[in-house]
Design a binder for these strands. Structure first.
Lengths: 188, 188
DNA sequence: TCCAATATACCAACCGTTCGGTACAGTGAG
DNA sequence: CTCACTGTACCGAACGGTTGGTATATTGGA
């Protein structure tokens, strides 16, 4: 039930969108201002430390959405295959079918690391932990679960990069179809 | 035998290095000037269209180096396993063990695409073509060879992203050890 | 003499950030 | 009920600095 979105929450969503479209460096305050509909100085009202705060808020929001779209369906109830399908659909939606980039990638490039140190790392680690936990639950040994989670993240990030470079969502779609058999324990 | 490096060639190498370290947007003319040891006017002497020309030159040089380090060893003489080892070593060296990024990733972010349209795409396609040709030669059917090449590039790019995010080269190293069995036709 | 190469000086545009200020919705004392 | 006060939301204008890029002058080797 979408009660009332505060202006700040709306702003964070728009900011996340802009960062994921342009990357950290190219997402200028002018663009973030246009994306949110707020004046530059208004942005400083919600984010006193400027661009750095905006990046952190965008990262936190993205993590929230990933948990919502992927992790929760994965650890929920129902048969395993159905859960994997749900998670795949969630991934596809969050990454817009492969057209929208991942902040784990974008926030490790250029000035982002200097502005918000460790942000990308903590985001990556959170996803790795969640995926490893799921893989372990599905039958993998602890060590193997970690490796499987790493491969999943690698395929995700790589597919997004290639899709972006080629201007095609096909590599991302193919990667999505590979994911379930990767996570599951009963492989050949 | 290219004994004497022209000043321009040295500059291109330094520029490529800087782009691969900072990405397109954060690689300012000031940084490129410092990286090359050349004043702005000298840079514009060698690269009349400015940053755009520098990006193109860096991309072309990177492609050259990849062919040299990976493709040529792969299509050379000797037993297949030895060639794969050589290519792996070449990859590791070119990407500095996972510490240096790939321009296919960096040049699809921010203003790069607007400045040099299609550059990242042509680079990605060149690598895909070369890898697919190798995979086909090693026994894969044409269609399968393309898919295998795509997966190899995805793993490469993804491993580089994750390694960068985590600040660890381990994901890249593990990916390198997976590559040979991916390219080879006789899989389970 | 010629011309590639470099230096110096400069530009308008834009950067992230800050300032001074307005509009307005509470709130609590009288 | 009123009115001074407070806090939140927002904005236009400007800050000092940097951006990518240019124009002009000078250097130095062939």
């Amino acid at each position: 039930m979408p009660v009332i979105k505060s202006s700040r929450e709306e702003a964070v969503d728009a900011i996340m969108k802009e960062f994921r479209k342009s990357g950290y460096d190219a997402a200028s305050l002018a663009r973030l201002s246009a994306a949110t509909g707020l004046g530059k100085s208004s942005l400083y009202h919600y984010f006193p430390n400027g661009k750095e705060d905006m990046a952190k808020a965008a990262g936190a929001r993205a993590a929230e959405l990933v948990v919502e779209a992927v992790i929760e369906p994965l650890t929920g109830e129902g048969d395993l295959k159905a859960r994997l399908n749900k998670a795949s659909a969630g991934l596809s939606k969050f990454y817009n079918g492969g057209k929208t980039s991942c902040l784990v990638d974008l926030f490790t490039i250029g000035e982002a690391e200097a502005a918000a140190p460790g942000l990308a790392k903590s985001m990556a680690e959170a996803v790795l932990r969640a995926l490893a936990s799921v893989a372990e639950e599905s039958g993998h040994a602890k060590k193997q679960a970690k490796l499987v989670a790493e491969r999943a993240v690698i395929e995700l990030e790589g597919a997004l990069v290639l899709a972006r470079a080629l201007g095609s969502t096909r590599p991302f779609q193919r990667m999505l179809s590979r994911l379930p058999e990767l996570l599951l324990a009963n492989e050949g």
